[in-house]
Design a protein around this nucleic acid. Structure first.
Lengths: 245, 245
DNA sequence: GCCTCCAAGTTGTACGACAACTTCGCTATG
DNA sequence: CATAGCGAAGTTGTCGTACAACTTGGAGGC
């Protein structure tokens, strides 16, 4: 919200240059002292910025040799980042829209109640939406919140503003989410809303979004038409991190 | 292979401490100067290590306040990392196995030929396997390679060693992969191999693995039984990175 | 032609200093 | 007594310099 720390600014700038092709894949970056001087920052900060890019897999550092731009694939829809459905649709150069929006307070289903630290049946705010791309119904989504976090009115009057922005403005920025992916065949209700025959193939994301301090602020379920968009994940190579002994 | 750079060693150590609960979620880490002194490293290297953890979402830094351990969810199967199917099965405390292994040279299907920079129909090494968990057939996988990279014999004689290890030993370590996820209904062949009725629900991963310099070394297709395991993805953000203007 | 070795260049680590920011207790003030 | 304001202490962020570890390429000798 407040301070884009210097290293993040530098990293953004470099990301832009990579994306724009100013720094081509395989190319070697200028040496750190030189680049730091060019950008007018210290080498320490530049190194911190490059470390961010390296973690993202955009560049690779070779001790004694240089820093090289990785041949990074162009991905259609990377699930590693937490964007809204509208952004995904817009990224495909289609016009995002919303129909059949319904917002009300409902009793929480068990799988939703648990992460929100509620009892099954407790009241939660639920937002049902059908998202369209160029008018075609492609995603049926449901978002659940604790009533103290977002009331039914607040949820319905958000227009095309993202839920994430709304939560951030209330001081509850989403830090990360965990999505469970499963295949599904359209049941009666979902099929009707998406206007597809019963039994049509869907890809379903059940997602739990939390703040940095671990408070779950949003639970959502997205039923995607199988051929709506290609869902992809960037998977970092084996090795380097997270495994124990 | 050769040098686990100091900051990565430090990061691994911290990761272990977090995983072991030595550093509890929400807890503040010792201050950087103090921790650096304790670990016997410079503050620079420690900061670089912490930067890695922060990018991974394990900790969060607050300027002027401290560094705090994030409340990180325990994930069953995180697609963000590139592990083999055997590891996923073992992680669920089940006994991984392989049946119906068949390895031969085949003409490349078009979707496989393209990323491998071949013409459709060109010969490729293909490894078909049915993976089992406690004897139950849950994944049917196919791996494709260029014949110069791995011959049919090399592929079949790898026992339970991972393909990734084999490639790494040949000087072609996998740096990252891109997986496309889609729902699927079991066709005749797949249904037969997995011993499920035709039309059973599957989750299919089509994955392209590359080295750091962008050379595609492996293409694979994994057909997972829908209820085999929960496939999850850790999703960062939104905010912080990758978007353009 | 080939091998060895050296020098230059690059990233990795270390140390010290100061700036920016947060936190919390103390104090002055109403 | 309650409250707003101040300030000191502690923490992360940035800077600068120096040197170590490593790679690369070319000069020189064989």
């Amino acid at each position: 919200m407040s301070r884009p720390s210097l290293r993040h600014s530098i990293a953004s700038g470099l990301r832009r240059r990579v994306a724009a092709g100013d720094l081509a894949p395989g190319e070697r970056l200028p040496s750190e002292p030189e680049l730091a001087k060019t950008l007018g920052v210290s080498r320490s900060s530049l190194r911190a910025a490059i470390a961010l890019l390296e973690e993202d897999g955009l560049v690779q550092r070779l001790h004694g040799s240089g820093t090289y731009v990785t041949h990074r694939p162009i991905m259609r829809n990377d699930l590693s980042r937490n964007f809204g459905v509208s952004s995904m649709i817009a990224a495909m150069a289609l016009e995002p829209g919303t129909v059949d929006e319904r917002c009300r307070v409902e009793p929480a289903p068990a799988p939703v109640a648990e992460p929100l630290l509620l009892q099954p049946g407790d009241p939660v705010t639920a937002l049902h939406r059908v998202r369209t791309a160029d008018g075609r119904r492609i995603v049926y989504s449901i978002d659940w919140c604790r009533p103290e976090v977002l009331s039914a009115e607040e949820m319905s009057e958000l227009g095309d503003g993202s839920l994430y922005e709304r939560l951030a403005h209330r001081g509850l920025p989403v830090h990360h989410g965990v999505a469970t992916i499963s295949p599904e065949m359209a049941s009666g209700e979902v099929a009707q809303r998406l206007d597809v025959p019963r039994g049509a193939l869907l890809l379903t994301l059940f997602q739990v979004d939390s703040t940095a301090d671990g408070h779950v602020v949003l639970v959502s379920e997205e039923h995607h038409l199988a051929d709506a968009f290609e869902v992809t994940v960037y998977r970092r190579g084996p090795g380097e991190g997270s495994e124990e002994a």
